[in-house]
Design a protein around this nucleic acid. Structure first.
Length: 429
RNA sequence: GUGGGCGUAGCCUAGCGGUUAAGGCGCCAGGUUGUGGCCCUGGAGAUCGAGGGUUCAAAUCCCUCCGUCCACCCCA
């Protein structure tokens, strides 16, 4: 509009791409997942930790690995007004390990068992199950290299899903070796692929440089024969890794946790070592993984701490909720208000405000009707909010010092003295 | 970053070249004096995503951009 006389039109804002508003009707799901996660973590003796939503950029850029997508294109980078180079957290583990080092947690009894619920940010094209801001439950067991703790963390995760009521989740498990045997394997794999580069797809040629382990996970038909003939990671695991993996499987069997070995399972971040796993729901989709984890024995060192082993997982709320909804899992509904106070005069409005506070003090929910509306309108509103009771306060009630208390379910009505109202609607004295 | 689908009131949808863009849900107000859910009546609410073009005429056709959804990549 090239018209100078036009006042600037206020822009219509929308939530940024890949983000969404969590509306009241969706909150019960969120609360259910959050409460269940917190409870299960506490059952396993994990303690809550919260770290900032942004960190010095190096915390993520130097740990995730140079060629990874996270570092190359997904991190939200910015400079603050003081010139600090910061990044919105793309994942939780690195920030928690930074805190572990900063607060000297290596002097606590090991392992240190931690959990958190926090948003992560990744600049990526949104699609089903993938957002630029998503929330994860994260669990980390730090300072223990033994496979028993891997089993414990996986057990915790499986328990979480069981308590959520998620149907038929499957666990896929793999070992990707350590800093000794994995580089050796990657060399062997590269040597093998080098002679097949003209036969594989374009993506694979990229993976060859950036992420060779992913070559094994290609879905292109023409790449399948190449994959079939490729050297196998499990044949190149060192004895220590092999034994670690075998013991973990024995523990999982002891826990009666089913798993399938998936040699194609690889993690996106470089700091993973040995154990890696993913949980998938019964019905698969493009972004199907509902939670994944792994061991990261080299991470603390990358952040400048003394070498410290660790193992953990992250599980995305949005995908969990999507699966809960898809299978029609029951979640506890948000509690409706106990009392709605309808008022007919300005004096009654003042009394309604006062009575509402008295009811709340007694621990029951109270909502007052909007000013200046008819009784009918307030009754409709009370009904829409599913209130259990409506207290009607007009001049007659004011004169008598009593409210007319109506129960919405059956329409029954009685008079209740003002000071008896909290008890009458279920409040504690 | 690549490819495809879709963009009409808060939500869902009709209209697909021709006078004041239609319906449902929701919202607001009424259906006698101070009473909800069902029903009835009325009302508010849309520069038909934005810009440009074709045409006597465009929500309807074309182009560009933006947004959104889905898929690849990757990941929770």
């Amino acid at each position: 509009m090239p018209n100078d006389d036009d006042a600037p039109q206020p822009r219509k804002y929308a939530a940024p791409r890949g983000t969404s508003d969590l509306l009241p009707e969706a909150w019960p799901y969120w609360k259910f997942v959050r409460d269940t996660g917190e409870r299960v973590c506490e059952l396993f003796g994990y303690q809550r930790i919260d770290t900032p939503m942004f960190e010095n950029a190096g915390v993520f850029l130097r740990t995730a690995g140079a060629g990874t997508d996270v570092v190359e294109k997904e991190v939200y980078l910015f400079e603050d007004r003081g010139g600090e180079r910061l990044a919105l957290r793309p994942e939780g583990t690195a920030t928690v390990m930074r805190a572990y080092i900063e607060h000297g947690m290596s002097s606590l009894p090991q392992p240190v068992r931690l959990y958190y619920i926090a948003p992560n940010f990744r600049y990526d094209r949104p699609q089903a199950g993938r957002y630029r801001q998503h929330t994860q439950l994260g669990v980390e067991a730090v300072g223990d290299a033994e496979p028993m703790i891997d089993a414990e963390v996986i057990d915790l995760q499986a328990t979480f899903y069981r308590q959520l009521g998620l149907a038929a989740v499957t666990l896929r498990l793999n070992s990707i070796g350590d800093s000794v045997c994995r580089p050796r394997y990657i060399e062997v794999l590269r040597d093998y692929y080098r002679s097949h580069l003209d036969e594989v797809c374009a993506d694979d040629r990229m993976r060859f440089d950036k992420n060779p382990l992913r070559l094994l996970d290609c879905k292109e038909d023409r790449c399948q024969p190449i994959i079939a003939g490729a050297p196998r990671l499990r044949d190149y695991l060192c004895d220590a890794c092999r034994q670690h993996f075998a013991q973990l499987q024995a523990y999982l069997r002891a826990l009666a946790i089913d798993f399938i070995l998936d040699e194609r399972l690889v993690r996106g971040l470089d700091y993973y070592t040995r154990t890696v796993w993913e949980f998938h729901p019964a019905e698969e989709g493009a972004q199907s993984s509902i939670g994944s984890g792994g061991r990261y024995d080299g991470l603390v060192e990358l952040l400048g701490g003394v070498p410290t082993p660790g193992v953990g997982f992250g599980s995305g709320f949005e995908r969990l909720i999507f699966n809960l909804k898809r299978q029609g899992a029951p979640v506890p509904p948000a509690p409706p208000p106990a009392l709605y106070l309808a008022h007919l005069t300005p004096e009654a409005a003042a009394e309604a405000l006062r009575l509402a506070d008295a009811v709340r003090s007694a621990g029951a929910e109270a909502v007052v009707g909007p000013q200046g509306r008819s009784l009918k309108a307030q009754m409709r509103h009370a009904n829409a909010r599913r209130a259990r009771y409506v207290a009607i306060i007009g001049s007659a009630e004011l004169a008598a010092g009593e409210a007319t208390l109506r129960q919405l379910a059956d329409g029954s009505e009685r008079r209740v003295a003002f000071d008896g109202l909290p008890a009458a609607v279920g409040g504690e004295p």
